[in-house]
Each structure stands twice: as C-alpha cells, then as structure tokens.
Write a protein that binds this DNA or RNA. Structure first.
Lengths: 173, 173
DNA sequence: TATATTTGTAAGTGATTACTCACTATTTGG
DNA sequence: CCAAATAGTGAGTAATCACTTACAAATATA
C-alpha cells in the first residue's frame, strides 16, 4: 500500500462519515488527500469501489474490538466488557464506526450475521448466570449498547458514565 | 395545498427515504410526481426547502403517536403503550419515520428536546412503580425502543413479537 | 366579463459530477 | 543497467445537477 493510496482512503473515510457518500465528490477527496483526482481511479475501480475498500475493513476492526471479550470465560466479566465497549472505542476510529452505523440504512452494507457470534457469546453468558431467556436477554442488551454507541458517536462520551454505572449495577457485574 | 404540490411532497418523501437526500435529484422527484421539474421550484425555494417542508411535519406526527400515551394515568399502562408503540406505526408512515431516523446523523435535523416531554412521562411512570432510578430507567427503555423501531423500519414487524412479549414481561405490564 | 394572480410547463442555464486519457516520474526485477 | 511495470498528473469528457426564465393555462377576484 503506497503512501498516497492510504491518504486517499483516510480522506475519503472522514468525508464520507461527515458529509455522506453521495455528498462527497471525488474532487473533494483528492483535494483533502493532496493527490490528483485521477489517482483515485488508478487505485480504485470507481467511487463505490473506494467505499467498498473502506467497508472491507469492518470485519477485522470488529474482531479487534471483540477479541478480548471472546477470550473471556467469566460470564459476569463478559457482560461487563460488553457494556464498556462503546466507551473503549478509540477516537481515531470514530469516523469509521460512524460510517458503519450510517450505512446500516443501505441494505447493501447491512449484515447482522457478522455480529452473530458475539451475540451468541453474550447469550451463553446470560445462560450461565441463570437468566430465564438468555437469547432475548442478549438481544435486549445488544439494542441498548447499539443505541448507546450511536449516541456516543454523535455526541461524545461526556455525561454517559452514569448510564454505564446504571447498566453495570442492573446486571450486577 | 394543490394536488400536484402534494404529489411532489409524497414523491420526494419516498425517494429521500429510499435513496437518501443527496442521491435524489429534483428531476427524479418531478418524474415520480408526474409534474414538470420547474414546478418544484415554484412551490419550494430549493431542494433543501422541500426537505424542510417534509421534516416540518415531524412535530405533529410525533404528537399523533404519543398523545394516547400522554393522556394515560396508569403507570403500567404507560409503559405498555410505549413498548407497543413501534408496532403501532402505520405502514403508510414508514417512509416518514425511516427518513426521520436517517437524518438523525445530520445535526441540523437532530433534536432530542422534542422527545423530552415523552421521556419525562415515562420517568414519572417508573417512579410511581417504585423504580430506584426512574430517569435512567426511562433512558434505558427509550434506547431499547429506539433500536427496536429502527429494526422494524428496516426489516418489518415479523418475528419481533416474541421480543415485545419479553419486554412486557420484564417490566411486568 | 375583464383583469390580476396563481399554477403549470418546456427549454434552457452554468456549474459540478464521476470518470478517462495521454503523458511523465518512479520503482522494480532480470 | 535497462526495460517493464507501476504510481502519479492534469487536462480533458459527456452526463447530470439544482435552478431559472419565458411563456401559457387555469383560477380567483372585481
């Protein structure tokens, strides 16, 4: 991967996440990346291909986030790590996850199967803790964490700690 | 409001909700509405003004949705009505609410204050039911209902009933 | 009925779009 | 060290964009 190709990718990521895919022109991307517009099309088939290249990183970044939780055995610790996950996302990856959530509305990029193994892990944890309906309990917590993640991506972490403590207390972890 | 103006509004709503604001051209709107493109600009200042006209209906539609819940006094019934709300949205209003959620990512159209009175009503209900932290409990349920609403708007109501029953049982309403 | 206002159309406008092409600079492999 | 491949540029391209203008049809008001 050449230096300028990386510059194109990161410029595109920021602009897509801030302004949206369609509102971002290839000329703006080239300008922000400090390259000629033509170079974008030497490295990527078209504008959509540039987006696909960015979105293609989703799986590895998901793994990065979830690996610690997947390796944990203690069910209470698993729930705790999941609740703290939205707060553990690095500032430098904010644009990436924002774009991820924005594009969920386009069915092309909406793939709930990717999260399935993590949801299963949480369901097992709930089962071990004696919850009556562990799968629904996992789905329930997933929805809370998703909403919380979105609001953190939109407004920042400030003032959300109280809610995190509330959740940890509610699940007694 | 003339007939063709209404046609423009509903054509724009559907296209904005399906393809996004920037991906929808005024010529496509005119084509779908069966009018000349120029008529759009006689009735609205510009394309953004057309979107604003659609978004301007948000308050009255929110009232429509929440009024029954706001008039209820029984706290258990209040929680129940809130949980059932995502399932009570008419099919004909799906595009409208989808657009509402999509545009939450654009700060211009993100206004959490509008939901404040409804959140307060739920917090009061939780307080009456003896919950320790009624405000956080209300925020918690709000996040679940928001995630649930989004998934229903994206995938439909099918297969979500079990989760609704799970929630009603969890809150004993 | 006469006139003024509103509703509507069709054919434009310049600007911007995603993308291509001809060309040069740089890097790589035998 | 030379040739082939790759990286990079800048000036194009046709198509599409949001929007305007000149004019006609319909409607309201007097």
């Amino acid at each position: 991967m050449t230096d300028k190709k990386e510059k194109i990718l990161s410029a595109a990521l920021e602009l897509f996440a801030n302004d949206g895919f369609n509102a971002t022109s290839t000329s703006k991307i080239a300008q922000k990346a400090g390259v000629s517009e033509g170079l974008i099309f030497r490295h990527f088939d078209n504008k959509k291909g540039l987006l696909n290249a960015i979105m293609g990183e989703a799986e590895s970044r998901l793994m990065e986030l979830f690996t610690p939780m997947m390796q944990e055995e203690n069910p209470k610790k698993i729930i705790e790590m999941y609740i703290e996950m939205p707060f553990s996302v690095d500032e430098s990856q904010r644009s990436f996850w924002k774009l991820q959530f924005m594009l969920k509305w386009q069915e092309e990029y909406y793939n709930p199967d990717k999260l399935k193994p993590f949801l299963d892990k949480i369901a097992i944890a709930f089962k071990e803790l004696g919850f009556k309906k562990p799968e629904l309990e996992a789905k329930h917590l997933e929805q809370v964490i998703e909403s919380l993640s979105i609001s953190i991506l939109r407004e920042g972490k400030e003032g959300k700690e109280a809610f995190k403590e509330f959740l940890l207390e509610k699940y007694n972890v």
